Computed example of a mutant assay.
Amino acid sequence: MELIVDERGSFIGKHQGRLRVTKDNERQKEVPIMHLRQVIIAGGGIAISSDAIRACSEEGIPIHFISSNGTPQASLYSAGLTGTVLTRRAQLRAYDGPAGVALARAFTLGKLGNQANLLRYVAKNRKGTAPEIYELLMATAAEVVDYQIAVERLHGETVDDIRDALMGIEGRYAARYWQAIGSLIPPALNWPGRETRGASDPFNQVLNYGYGVLYGQVEHAIVLAGLDPYAGLLHADRPGKPSLVLDLIEEFRQAVVDRTLLGQITRGWQIGREEDGRLDQPTRERIATKVLERLETTEPYEGKRQPLRHILQCQARHIATYVRGERESYTPFIMGW
């Protein structure tokens, strides 16, 4: 169970083994701590008591803070979850050797494969009803092979030798992917193409908020695997930049966020916004709920169907065992279609 609090003026406190959310002294929500998986605090003007934080820490429940537009801001974890040493030493060593090169390539191949498979997935039901769109989606999906070959041909002694080339390949196919996705977005949403920070159109805002929710889930999986979320490979190191989170999230954006939210708008969901153009509170809550629900659904993985949340945690652990030399290779997660 997740507790999502995104209404300004709310207060989260602890009361007899539960987290209670109140506003203006009126009870809004109440969740048993023993059933709670995580707390997501979205936006400003929300307070939480030290007793509530302590209770979450004792039970290993993360508290994620994201802005009203979905930008990840902070996460609180129990100190016991971040006390690993051996895995982090191996992770840092991997950066300067072949393991780092292999991981960076795998993250890129994972994203390319998932983008192509999502296009195939959304094309399936349009073959008879919208043949032109079907052909566009399938043709764009087929193009991915050239990009995958380009990635596999890259070689270098360290990830620094191939990073720029990898990012260039990823960026070129992303442009093709979003162009194809644009054919599915209702004209009323005025889709300008993919925009990240500062997006003013509703669907980009919805995507950015959904990625912000997913970000917290990826970071938590990485921490539980004993890895340092700030020591990435594909994404370059910068102060305060959680590069490994940005690396691993590439394998899950399409399966968890793009598929979920694209399905919502193509089925007629009306995106609500405030007067200032930001997403309104019911819309933000719906996005978070749908993304978290999607994580509980299953995908083919290692010979059987497993929940996406479990797959995410396994992938993080596979990174850890690979850098420690306990796994021969790292295989990215590719969604089914």
Rank of each mutant, 00 (worst) to 15 (best):
E2A: 14
D6F: 12
E7D: 09
E7K: 15
G9H: 06
H15T: 13
R18A: 06
R20F: 00
D24G: 13
K29M: 13
K29Y: 06
V31P: 05
L36S: 06
L36H: 13
Q38H: 06
V39E: 00
I40H: 14
I40P: 03
I41H: 04
G44T: 09
I46M: 00
S50I: 01
A52P: 02
I53H: 05
C56P: 05
E58M: 15
E59Q: 09
I63S: 00
H64L: 11
F65H: 09
F65D: 08
T71G: 05
T71W: 02
P72H: 14
Q73M: 14
Y77A: 04
T82V: 15
G83N: 14
T84M: 09
T87A: 15
R88A: 07
R89T: 05
L92Q: 00
R93H: 11
G100P: 03
V101L: 05
A106F: 05
L109Q: 00
G110Y: 08
G110M: 10
G113R: 03
Q115H: 13
L118C: 00
R120C: 01
K124I: 08
N125A: 01
G128V: 00
P131T: 04
E132F: 14
E132I: 09
Y134L: 03
E135Y: 06
L136K: 10
L136D: 05
L136C: 10
L137C: 14
L137V: 10
M138C: 08
T140N: 08
V145W: 08
V159I: 13
I162V: 15
R163M: 07
M167G: 02
M167K: 10
M167P: 01
G168A: 12
I169Q: 02
E170W: 14
R172I: 08
R172M: 08
A174E: 11
R176E: 05
Y177V: 03
Y177L: 03
A180M: 04
G182P: 01
P186H: 01
A188E: 12
A188P: 01
L189C: 06
W191F: 15
P192V: 03
E195M: 04
E195T: 04
P202K: 11
N204A: 02
Q205K: 13
V206L: 08
L207T: 06
N208E: 01
Y211R: 03
Y215P: 13
G216N: 13
V218S: 14
E219Q: 15
E219Y: 00
H220K: 12
L227S: 09
L227Q: 11
P229F: 09
A231K: 04
A231W: 10
G232S: 12
G240T: 09
K241R: 15
S243G: 05
L244P: 01
L244S: 10
V245S: 07
L246Q: 12
D247T: 02
L248C: 07
I249K: 14
E250C: 09
Q254M: 08
A255T: 14
D258C: 09
G263N: 13
I265Y: 00
I271H: 04
G272S: 10
E274M: 08
E275T: 14
Q281N: 11
P282T: 07
P282Y: 10
R284M: 05
R286N: 08
I287N: 03
L292M: 12
E293Y: 09
E293G: 12
E296N: 04
T298E: 15
K304P: 00
R305T: 01
R309W: 07
L312C: 08
Q313F: 12
R324S: 09
E328D: 15
E328Y: 07
T331Q: 12
I334P: 05
G336T: 11
